[in-house]
Design a protein around this nucleic acid. Structure first.
Lengths: 216, 216
DNA sequence: TAGATTGTTAATCGATTAACAATC
DNA sequence: TAGATTGTTAATCGATTAACAATC
């Protein structure tokens, strides 16, 4: 069980493995194999075994993996066997949608306070959350022991908001603003940019338009 | 200008390059360099030059890149120099949020029709879009020449909906359902799963809780 | 025991980086 | 010309895959 410097790309796959294990558990399955997991995910069984081997030995030769056990181990490794407290900055359309997004709570990620800099919004209640002034950010982050920030602000404001959160000790940011943030090495940022994902896909399409022979 | 088999990971970076070029253009910049682009994105200048070299020669030695020109080239390469027509399947909280998401339209990605299987929603108008029955999917996809599908349905429905879209010739899917889709090789899927992204980040945090010495 | 599947090693494959000639 | 930066090559680095001994 080395656990020294696991490649980030391996870590990125663990949540996907966990998701499949949750499904298998819901289906009442007791045992699975690297082959089955790989088939469900479209990756090789070797990769799954190799990935898991960074963290320990979780299976039995000849048998495979106990679904519930492996799930618990992955939850422990990812630190999702506890609750996480988040703040949401920005309560525009996107922010409001995130307030309604049930999957956060279902997975132990709780929005404990929401903020905006629009005086017309401050003090109003949206989806059960009172909107706070940015002036209250420092106090609330400290009092509520917030560890994750969700940025749903316009791109022009994202850098400044990120800097303030980082200053307050928040070391994990889920950034919906279409902008690259420069952060210290101990701060993690994950980017959600569906437009970039669409543009990634259109690279592979559209060629048929260039020469007229569009095939369906 | 080979363009044969550009690595997918290179293609994934092009939308990010395009985003920075848009910002530079908005700032009124005429010329940039691989160094500057790399600094803004936190990647090496060598990687940017190597990535671009897959598609041609866009710069001038000693000078750098013309911002407007390189932007146009990337738009052409990614096929985002034209409009794209999309359908949205699923008009729950998430689907409604996507209907309000302005960045899609701003970048030429247009939702031309929305669908749901809930009789209570069908026929109503949400954010200016009339909600269609799934029975109308085939006709509308064909008539409107839809090429991209956005899946905002519950995980239990995602596979079936994806299969129907693929059957109708839709070869690009933006999937918000937390489930892995198995698709033919000519179909592209991009996954949006913020919970998985949060779980990716919590791997790197939380250790301080395990031994009590939480540092801020 | 025979069959199956893990964990791990070694080989392969692919991506990133460093360095520099070319050249604007 | 001198200085700067590209495009590209070669070296390095890292990830994936194949194969198989270990073992349940």
């Amino acid at each position: 069980m080395p656990q020294n410097e696991v490649p980030d790309i391996v870590v990125a796959r663990l949540p996907i493995y966990l998701r499949v294990l949750n499904h298998l558990l819901a289906e009442g399955r007791q045992i699975t194999s690297s082959q089955e997991l790989g088939d469900r995910l479209g990756i090789s069984s070797a990769q799954i075994r190799k990935d898991l081997s960074h963290f320990g030995e979780f299976g039995k030769q000849g048998t495979g993996y106990n679904v519930a056990y492996l799930r618990e181990q992955l939850r422990r490794i990812l630190h999702v066997d506890r609750e996480w407290r988040m703040v949401l900055i920005g309560v525009g359309d996107l922010g409001q949608a995130l307030l309604h997004y049930q999957r956060f709570d279902e997975h132990g990620f709780h929005i404990v306070a929401v903020f905006d800099n629009d005086p017309a919004k401050i003090g109003t209640v949206i989806a059960g959350h009172r909107v706070h002034s940015m002036d209250e950010l420092a106090d609330i982050v400290r009092e509520q022991k917030v560890e994750i920030g969700i940025l749903a602000v316009p791109p022009s404001a994202a850098r400044e908001v990120a800097a303030r959160l980082i200053e307050l000790g928040v070391k994990a940011l889920l950034n919906y603003a279409p902008i690259t943030l420069t952060v210290p090495p101990d701060v993690r940022v994950q980017y959600v940019d569906p437009v970039a994902q669409l543009q990634h896909m259109t690279y592979y399409r559209g060629a048929e338009y260039e020469n007229g022979n569009r095939e369906r």
